[in-house]
Design a protein around this nucleic acid. Structure first.
Lengths: 210, 210
DNA sequence: TCTCAACTACACTGCACGGTGTAGTGTCGC
DNA sequence: GCGACACTACACCGTGCAGTGTAGTTGAGA
């Protein structure tokens, strides 16, 4: 068992940033550890001293990106759909959901973190022996479903299954926006907004009281 | 410029099948051409004589899978949403859309062709210089949008933008189902059906006349 | 029978690279 | 001053492999 170095937070971060950029750009398998070291401005010996091997470095990047995304999502939910319901009308809910979806999609679709998770995980996707490499989004869906259940309790939504509704919301907004524009640096904010606004409109037609 | 061998259709197919299986399982970069040749039961020399190099083999597999998927989609649309509208009621439309979405999703989510396209393209996703490697799904969306416009003309749907509706339909059904279950061999048909049926229900609530 | 194309089965080349070892340098604390 | 730790800058090893060349075999057609 290798003893990994605690060392310097700045160097650790530099390695992670460099590796993520290169992995994302060229794919994990095509990026040499020499290249990572050069980009991070550290020696390759140091990269191995911190992370032990390439796979461990990859998993660390994945964990960071997933944490970052979950944090973004939780913050956006807390901001736009607060626990203490300030939202009392159907129109207000539509506006709040739009703001949430725009905020989230704007951040995520243009986020190299998201692109990193998406691309890196997808590289493993066809490789069926790697379930541990997937990213758990259950907590975010649960939080949204919880909010939806409350809105339903207040008559602002009509739904049998809050979790299903949360999945539909995600599909019509974030999933669709990211499917349409897979490249962060080219993502057009106006197009994201249009896609997401249309998706929320459809969601409200489906789930608002009639 | 290499002269590629026309040779035998059976051997060509064997190479394509073998390469696709291995590329899908292990990723393009991790599969050796020796392995492809062995699996196809041909010599490596023959693989190179047919395809010239690894990338050309990869692109051939991608083109085959995309053709196959487009064919599947077109057939499902023609079967469930025929041009000559036998569908005259909203309930009938809901049933037809459900049948289409279930048929498509059942086939696609469990299809190694789809998984191949998804995984192989996604491997390139973070690599922004490769737009030519993406799969064009516009024609399928156009066909669905065309049908939707007709149904709207007959009062079976209310929609401003048939293309947007087609995207929403796709997001609530196929995109969601494939996102939930990314591994073909493990895909549970019952779960696909549930997801898709729920998605069509939401779609109809959003777009059927009120 | 001869020729040609397809194919096999190797061998080979040049290169890449994950990972490891080591000597030397600099800094810090005792 | 000494020792420990972090780090650099190489060198090295063993392995893998894309791609190419070549000799030999086989089958089909002229």
């Amino acid at each position: 068992m290798k003893t990994l170095r605690a060392g310097s937070p700045a160097k650790r971060a530099a390695i992670l940033v460099a590796a993520r950029e290169l992995f994302l750009r060229d794919g994990v398998d095509r990026v040499s550890m020499d290249a990572v070291a050069a980009r991070a401005a550290v020696s390759k010996r140091t990269v191995y001293d911190y992370f032990g091997d390439k796979r461990t470095l990859f998993l660390a990047i994945l964990a960071d990106a997933a944490d970052s995304l979950n944090g973004i999502a939780r913050r956006a939910i807390d901001e736009h759909l607060p626990d203490d319901p300030a939202i009392t009308t159907v129109a207000g809910l539509g506006e709040a959901l739009t703001a949430l979806a725009v905020d989230l999609s704007m951040t995520v679709v243009r986020s190299t973190d998201y692109a990193a998770v998406f691309a890196l995980v997808a590289q493993q996707r066809g490789q069926e022996g790697s379930p541990g490499d997937d990213v758990d989004t259950l907590a975010v869906h649960d939080a949204v479903a919880d909010r939806f259940a409350r809105f339903a309790g207040h008559g602002l939504l009509e739904l049998d299954d809050p979790r299903e509704a949360a999945h539909h919301f995600g599909a019509l907004t974030l999933l669709l926006a990211s499917d349409e524009q897979p490249f962060p640096s080219r993502a057009d904010p106006e197009r994201i907004r249009r896609t997401v606004t249309g998706g929320v409109r459809a969601f409200m037609r489906a789930y608002a009281p009639r």
